[in-house]
């Protein structure tokens, strides 16, 4: 392999390896990342702040359309413009499942946000089939029954498709 080929391969590999880093550092504004982005109520999440000035104090809020919960504050550490924080925070065990925005903001008005999806608490995990709720609130299995017309139509289509398929497979053709 020629040195030029080696150089090209090395350049491509370096670009691929740097993609996530490049995306992560493309912001001049403060930024936060929540890990995991999907978490169960009652479990712990880790919030990582970057692009912050050391010493800045960020108030952390968990917000949805109907609620805003203060999670505490985090102080950016580091040098020059490389400040940030890493903070583990337990989610309330009674937090309703749904979509939340995690907001970190300073008194000076600097704000960073990240999405967090909260699922039900781990104890409620159930590998069983999906359920639907009746108006009374009683859960029941999804109704998978189909109208007789739909079943007849689908069965007819399956039969017609099978017959057409077999006819196409078995039909004799002349030579080339």
């Amino acid at each position: 392999m020629s040195p030029r080929t080696y150089a090209t391969i090395s350049l491509v590999a370096a670009i691929i390896a740097l993609i996530p880093t490049t995306v992560g550092h493309a912001h001049d504004e403060p930024a936060i990342v929540v890990n995991p982005a999907i978490a169960a109520a009652g479990t712990s999440i880790t919030i990582t702040g970057t692009e912050m000035e050391p010493g800045e104090v960020f108030q952390l809020f968990l917000e949805s359309a109907s609620t805003s919960i203060e999670l505490g504050e985090a102080i950016a550490e580091g040098e020059a413009e490389e400040g940030g924080f890493v903070m583990a925070i337990p989610l309330p065990s009674d937090l309703p499942a749904g979509s939340y925005t995690l907001r970190a903001s300073t008194d000076e008005g600097e704000t960073a946000v990240a999405d967090l999806t909260v699922t039900a608490a781990s104890a409620e995990a159930d590998p069983g089939p999906a359920m639907a709720q009746e108006p009374s609130g009683e859960p029941h299995l999804l109704d998978r029954s189909k109208p007789a017309g739909e079943i007849a139509g689908a069965a007819s289509l399956a039969l017609a498709s099978a017959l057409l398929g077999v006819w196409l497979i078995r039909r004799k053709d002349p030579g080339p």
Partner: peptide
């Protein structure tokens, strides 16, 4: 189709 996923379980 199962029930809605619960993270970590």
């Amino acid at each position: 189709l199962g029930q809605p996923g619960v993270a970590g379980a």
